Simulated assay, not measured.
Amino acid sequence: MESHENEWSLETRLVQVRGQVQGMDYREACVRRARELCVTGWVRNRMDGSVEAMLQGSPEQLAEMYDWLSEGMSAALVDELEVTEVQPPFVRFDNFELLPTL
């Protein structure tokens, strides 16, 4: 059971990952890692070749997820990680999902 302190420290970030990140199961691996870290939200490919993820969790969970997005998959060549803070009120995600390409 999560404490109220953890609930208050919930943050939401929109992350765009640029580089060679499509066509190598990057999104599927992202889903697995997010679930391991108990990060909620979603991930999807974008038509411009980037991967976009909505991440929700504690600052510590998000920091671990940023590290994975940048360097966690050896086949991916990440050039840039753009992180945008999502201001409350925001949707509360229950799990981490793979969405269709946008």
Rank of each mutant, 00 (worst) to 15 (best):
M1W: 09
E2R: 11
E2T: 07
S3V: 07
E5W: 10
E5P: 07
E7T: 04
S9P: 04
S9Q: 15
L10I: 09
E11M: 13
R13A: 02
L14E: 04
V15K: 06
V15N: 02
M24S: 13
D25S: 13
E28F: 11
A29V: 07
R35A: 06
R35P: 06
E36G: 10
V39E: 07
T40D: 02
G41R: 05
V43Y: 01
R44N: 01
R44S: 04
R46I: 00
D48I: 06
G49Q: 05
G49T: 01
S50T: 11
E52K: 02
M54Q: 10
Q56D: 06
G57M: 09
S58P: 07
E60M: 00
L62W: 03
L62R: 05
L62D: 02
A63G: 12
E64R: 15
E64W: 09
Y66R: 04
D67I: 08
G72M: 04
G72N: 09
M73T: 05
L77M: 12
V78W: 02
V78A: 06
E80C: 09
V83F: 01
V83G: 06
V83L: 04
T84V: 15
V86G: 00
Q87K: 14
P88W: 01
F90D: 10
R92Q: 13
R92W: 02
N95Y: 12
L98I: 00
P100V: 07
P100W: 01
